[in-house]
């Protein structure tokens, strides 16, 4: 799994629970080190171990934690870049949803060895969308649920989100778009300086 993903988990745990908890998580996961490098790759089995250990140490359910990671990724001021890169996807929330199919390719353009799970958006009547995630590590849909919650807010859209794992092992995030123009949303300037 790419260092960016593991490093995101590290930043989330450090910022949410503190550095001490992070050290406990890495010890419990038996990593042999405590710092992930964003630009290096790590063995695939490390990430699930890390996540399980995080749940055990924090006494929180992995489901909640994964969604919180998604929320964290796009709301922490430290990672303003992630929010901005996602906002390039579209001028409104619906256009953003339609751009999610391209997200793994967009990510690859930025970091060529970053493999994000494939996603597919199904459009249903009445402002309903299903986002189907096909991830080798279960739980990516939960992370996306957290991301979508914040990004919808960012666009000023009012949405209801629901996550489930389908019988064939895919994850489905159902998105009910109640109002695209519910609130003001956050400003997005195309040419904002890079942090």
């Amino acid at each position: 799994m790419h260092g960016l993903i593991n490093r995101s988990v590290q930043n989330f745990v450090c910022d949410t629970f503190g550095k001490d908890v992070w050290l406990q998580v890495t010890q419990r996961a038996d990593l042999g080190f405590s710092e992930f490098e964003a630009m290096l790759s790590y063995k695939d089995d490390i990430t699930p171990r890390l996540l399980d250990s995080m749940a055990a140490v924090t006494h929180r359910s992995l489901t909640d934690l994964l969604e919180d990671i998604g929320t964290y990724l796009v709301s922490t001021p430290k990672l303003e870049g992630v929010r901005r890169l996602l906002r390039f996807g579209g001028v409104n929330f619906e256009e953003f949803l339609q751009s999610l199919d391209d997200l793994p390719d967009r990510a690859k353009l930025a970091v060529s060895d970053l493999d994000l799970p494939r996603m597919e958006l199904d459009e249903k009547p009445d402002g309903q969308f299903d986002l189907i995630c096909q991830s080798p590590v279960p739980g990516f849909g939960l992370v996306m649920t957290g991301v979508l919650r914040v990004i919808a807010d960012d666009y000023g859209a009012l949405v209801v989100l629901d996550h489930e794992t389908t019988a064939d092992g895919f994850e489905r995030v159902s998105i009910t778009l109640i109002d695209t123009d519910f609130a003001e949303g956050r400003q997005f300037e195309l040419g904002a300086p890079i942090i």
Binding site: G81, L85, F88, A110
Partner: peptide
Amino acid sequence: AIEMLYLIEAKSAAMDSSRQLNLK
């Protein structure tokens, strides 16, 4: 143009991250 701007930002962020790793 928008994709170009996206790339500039994404590549700058990735390059910055790599540079930090190189320094380390």
